[in-house]
Simulated scan of single mutants.
Amino acid sequence: MEKKILVVDDEERMRTLVRDFFRRSGYAVLEAGDGLEALERLDRHRDIGLVILDVMMPRLDGWDTAREIRKNSSVPIIMLTAKSDESDELRGFELGIDEYVTKPFSPRTLVARAEALLRRTGNGEAGNGRLETAGIVVDQNAHTVAIDGRPVELSLKEFELLTYFMENSGIALSREQILNNVWNYDYFGDPRTVDTHVKKLRSKMGEKGELIQTIWGMGYRFTAPKPQP
């Protein structure tokens, strides 16, 4: 079955370019010319596996569209923008954007980024097991997280970040290590991206967020409590 992608851009030429490259790679592609149309498409097609979202659009821009999507969906989002300001990139990550691609870009690179995201988003393909500690259960096959029996909705990057922390429990991890392993490609942006994601992850984890400890000047360490004798 073809994986379904939604391309959201007010420029028809850009939508056509992206659509054609993805179709040649074997994907089903839906299109939307603005944020409101994108939300309607997502509501009608619940099997959309990835959203490619432009920032500058009429009626509802990319930022507000992403904010609306994240209210009830963790579908992976790649944000397209003509801006290269790092503050814009951080803003995107704060909204739960999974990847950030600056125009102009290579369509082949965009497809490769999308394929990497889709491989990591479940359907039994990305995960390889179950992690459990301190009441936190990460099911990599089902791509779900529960804390003390309560389901917790995480974005793709937050899920991968928590998984990486739990797989490396007790180990001090630098921001560079986290970027290289969680973002899964050579990342040349601001390392504060890690801080932004950790802040949101801690917030969603409630009291268990305290298990992610800050190592000042270096990075973070996930420390699970020792079992009582």
Results as ranks from 00 to 15, higher is better:
Lys204Pro: 11
Asn168His: 15
Ser169Tyr: 05
Lys208Pro: 05
Pro151Arg: 03
Leu161Gly: 00
Asn168Arg: 14
Tyr187Ser: 05
His197Thr: 14
Thr196Lys: 11
Glu158Leu: 01
Val198His: 06
Glu207Ser: 11
Gly206His: 08
Glu153Pro: 01
Val198Gln: 07
Glu158Gln: 12
Arg202Asn: 08
Gln213Asp: 03
Ala172His: 09
Pro151Thr: 07
Gly206Phe: 07
Arg175Asp: 08
Lys204His: 08
Leu156Thr: 11
Lys157Val: 15
Val198Pro: 06
Leu201Ile: 03
Thr193Asp: 00
Val194Phe: 02
Pro151Glu: 03
Met166Lys: 03
Phe165Cys: 05
Leu211Lys: 08
Val145Asn: 00
Ser174Trp: 06
Ser155Tyr: 09
Ile147Tyr: 02
Asp190Phe: 01
Thr196Asp: 06
Glu167Met: 12
Val152His: 02
Arg150Gln: 13
Met166Leu: 09
Gly170Ser: 04
Asp190Gln: 06
Phe188His: 15
Glu207Thr: 10
Asp148Val: 02
Trp183Leu: 13
Ala172Val: 14
Thr214Gln: 13
Phe188Tyr: 14
Asn180Ile: 04
His197Arg: 15
Asp148Tyr: 01
Lys204Trp: 08
Ile147Trp: 01
Ile212Arg: 01
Leu162Asp: 01
Thr214His: 08
Leu162Gly: 00
Asn168Glu: 07
Ser203Arg: 15
Gly149Met: 07
Glu176Val: 09
Trp183Tyr: 12
His197Ile: 14
Glu210Gly: 11
Thr214Met: 12
Glu158Cys: 07
Leu173Lys: 00
Gln213Trp: 06
Pro191Ser: 09
Trp216Arg: 15
Val182Gln: 03
Glu210Met: 11
Val152Phe: 06
Tyr164Leu: 00
Ile147His: 05
Ile171Trp: 09
Asn181Met: 09
Ala172Gln: 14
Ala146Val: 07
Leu156Ser: 11
Ile215Leu: 12
Phe188Leu: 14
His197Met: 14
Trp183Asp: 04
Phe188Ile: 13
Trp183Glu: 12
Gly149Val: 04
Glu207Ala: 12
Glu153Ser: 14
Ser174Val: 03
Glu160Trp: 08
Val145Arg: 04
Gly189Phe: 10
Val145Phe: 04
Leu162Cys: 02
Phe188Ser: 14
Asp190Ile: 07
Phe165Lys: 00
Lys200Asn: 14
Gln177Met: 15
Gly217Ser: 05
Asp186Met: 10
Leu154Thr: 11
Val145Asp: 03
Gly206Arg: 07
Ile178Arg: 03
Asp148Cys: 05
Thr196Leu: 08
Leu173Asn: 02
Tyr164Lys: 02
Pro191Asn: 06
Gly209Glu: 03
Asn184Gly: 12
Thr163Asp: 10
Glu160Tyr: 05
